[in-house]
């Protein structure tokens, strides 16, 4: 299977890429292409033009310390994330998510920016980044702007990035000491799309009291969502098995999952509870 015809641009700078996106009707940014090219081959997607941002010469693949956050370049591959020592240490939730995407070849080529812009509600990284309250740096004609996570994912396959903007960096706020994070997903095979994906970040206060908690869910709505009710239930309480289980029972309150052959709506609603509990427990076990 082959894609429909399209025009291809390999701009030499981001600035030029942005211009190309502006002047070309129906143009699409190409990064790793691991989701886009499959959809184009199936001829479900047929953009008129592709703007390949991997040859701009602008540095877009990096993991570095910023002010109060970690900066991850948009073209950082899943494989790099999975193997990054700093990510492993500070944000194991991201290593968890990256390591469960597709397979080795997809992880070699797929990028964090591509995954976020593609905004598949069942994708792993967007769910993990939602729990981390990450921010998204985009560049456009007018320069740079930062989109908070809550405003970034708009709908299925839809973000708030404008047509002539490019995601360049994801900023992940550092968590306080004694925080732990985890992402786990329920899927038929390891690399499959999640039936339910759950991200959890917990911060433990004195006497094992929950200072802060964030639970994110994937594959259960048109975007990754936060399980706010569960979070509210746990905040300020002792992080013990009982409280975590009780909070997890509420984790599906905000969800509106679809049905498919791997999981019905009801099954997903039930699985959210199971995996929210497991993700919280795993995150807690990592809080040091």
């Amino acid at each position: 299977m082959t894609p429909k015809k399209f025009a291809y641009f390999a701009p030499a700078s981001l600035k030029e890429a942005i211009q190309l996106l502006r002047v070309n009707e129906d143009a699409k940014v190409l990064a790793g292409g691991q989701s886009l090219i499959a959809l184009m081959k199936l001829r479900l997607a047929a953009p008129a033009a592709l703007v390949d941002i991997t040859k701009t010469g602008d540095l877009l693949s990096y993991i570095r310390e910023g002010k109060g956050h970690l900066e991850v370049g948009a073209l950082t591959t899943h494989d790099t994330l999975e193997r990054s020592k700093i990510i492993n240490k500070k944000f194991p939730i991201l290593s968890d998510a990256a390591s469960k995407i597709g397979d080795q070849q997809i992880r070699n080529r797929g990028t964090i920016g591509g995954s976020c812009c593609h905004a598949d509600p069942a994708a792993d990284l967007p769910t993990a980044l939602t729990a981390l309250e990450s921010e998204f740096v985009v560049r456009g004609v007018k320069g740079k702007r930062v989109i908070p996570q809550s405003k970034f994912f708009v709908d299925t396959f839809t973000t708030s990035i404008a047509k002539d903007e490019i995601l360049t960096e994801i900023q992940i706020p550092h968590t306080p000491p004694k925080s732990g994070s985890a992402y786990i997903k329920h899927s038929r095979r390891e690399g499959d799309f999640a039936i339910v994906g759950v991200g959890a970040v917990v911060t433990v206060g004195p006497k094992k009291v929950c200072r802060d908690v964030r639970v994110s869910l994937g594959a259960v709505a048109s975007t990754p969502i936060r399980a706010k009710s569960a979070e509210r239930h746990l905040k300020g309480k002792t992080l013990d098995e009982g409280n975590i289980a009780e909070a997890a029972e509420r984790a599906n309150e905000e969800a509106d999952p679809p049905s498919d052959m791997h999981g019905s709506r009801q099954y997903r609603l039930d699985m959210i509870k199971v995996f929210a509990r497991r993700a919280l427990n795993l995150a807690l076990s990592r809080a040091r």
Binding site: Y8, L30, G33, Q34, I37, A38, K41, L50, Q104, Q105, I106, N108, R109
Partner: peptide, 8 residues
């Protein structure tokens, strides 16, 4: 490694 059917 890449899947050459997923790379232009």
């Amino acid at each position: 490694t890449v899947k050459s059917c997923m790379v232009l």
